[in-house]
């Protein structure tokens, strides 16, 4: 196996080992931190598909993160108040079932990604960045001004949602749920990277003309990637809301988009485990430095600068060197 392969295994095992140890040592806060890492990593894995593999610099992925969050919030709040979401033309009731919430989050964020992508992928470069940002901000202001679900104050959910056979209020069990979903997403991306679709998407990033010339529409390939990417980030939003038992418009904010992008860049753009490494580093730094000084973001800024200037491959690149090629 390549060096990067070993590093990836070490990473994913550490992410499992830390909360397991915390469980034994009775350190529930560490479990929560690890859960945040897993969920943020999932958001980053989603963005990395668009950004890393597809070269689509989306500054609006908070839109999907927020939609996942509100999918959870809306379904769960209706379930806890026993008021159906819709009665006419058909009865739609709230739910506290995680699988149903996840499917809803995936579906809705996929549809929104389809709409946003269909418009924004007609542009490239700076315009693409600005349009995705604008869509994110639109949803942000919409969530603030929509009073039905808490508006500016956000929406608390009193108990965590249910997963058949598990006690989701037990931190380690909720961690394991998030961890398994992250692993599934990573397996999916690792397969996708080597697949026909991965080859086309990867080539479209390098030369649009090359891909068009062989009869493949780069627009459609990118749109597909954008939708899959939005769905994964949407799912992570639903998990994040469940972790906090709280949804608020800040999930839609451009700072959130920026943070997801920071996970990817810190960890290593286009590297399979980049978002995992990046999210872990981010959370560790936030925890360590955030405790010492309120200005920890300055340190983060410096670190980011260093990565962009000297270590394009991010943390993974630093540890594993240049990516190995297959084929």
């Amino acid at each position: 196996m390549s060096r990067e392969g070993w590093i990836n295994i070490a990473l994913i095992l550490s992410l499992l080992a830390v909360p397991l140890w915390a469980q034994v040592a009775d350190e529930p806060f560490l479990i929560t931190l690890s859960t945040r890492v897993a969920i943020f990593a999932l958001a980053g894995v989603g963005l990395n598909l668009a950004l890393g593999l597809g070269g689509l610099v989306s500054l609006g992925h908070a839109a999907f993160f927020g939609i996942g969050g509100y999918a959870m919030g809306i379904l769960a709040s209706h379930a806890q108040s026993y008021a159906p979401i819709l009665e006419v033309p058909l009865l739609i009731e709230g739910t506290k079932s995680m699988p149903v919430i996840w499917l809803t989050a995936l579906l809705v964020s996929g549809l929104v990604a389809l709409a946003i992508g269909a418009l924004s992928l007609r542009t490239t470069g700076v315009y693409f960045i600005m349009i995705t940002l604008a869509f994110g901000q639109m949803l942000y202001y919409f969530s603030i001004s929509w009073p039905a679900y808490g508006g500016e104050d956000g929406l608390p959910i009193y108990t965590r949602n249910n997963f058949p056979g598990l006690n989701t209020l037990d931190p380690i069990q909720f961690f394991l749920i998030s961890y398994v979903i992250l692993c599934i997403a990573l397996v999916f991306i690792s397969l996708l990277t080597k697949s026909s679709f991965g080859l086309a998407l990867n080539a479209a990033r390098q030369s649009v003309r090359r891909v068009e010339t062989v009869g493949i529409s780069t627009y459609r390939v990118r749109l597909t990637a954008f939708v899959l990417s939005g769905m994964m980030t949407g799912l992570s939003g639903a998990l994040f809301a469940d972790l906090n038992r709280f949804v608020s418009p800040s999930m839609f904010s451009w700072q959130t988009s920026g943070e997801i992008m920071i996970f990817v860049i810190l960890g290593g753009t286009a590297r399979l485990f980049g978002p995992v490494a990046g999210a872990a580093l981010f959370i560790v730094l936030e925890h360590l430095l955030g405790g010492i000084s309120d200005y920890w973001l300055i340190f983060l800024g410096l670190l980011l600068l260093a990565v962009v200037l000297f270590a394009r491959g991010g943390l993974i690149g630093l540890l594993a060197g240049s990516p190995s090629r297959s084929g």
Binding site: S195, L199, A200, Q206, V211
Partner: peptide, 29 residues
């Protein structure tokens, strides 16, 4: 050309285009 890709990958991309849809996500190309 896709300059970061191998020569073989570039040519396979052509075959993918000729085949029609490159929308297969799981099988290694």
């Amino acid at each position: 050309l896709a300059l970061e890709d191998s020569v073989l990958q570039n040519v396979i991309l052509g075959g993918l285009g000729a085949q029609g849809r490159p929308y297969r996500f799981f099988k290694p190309v």
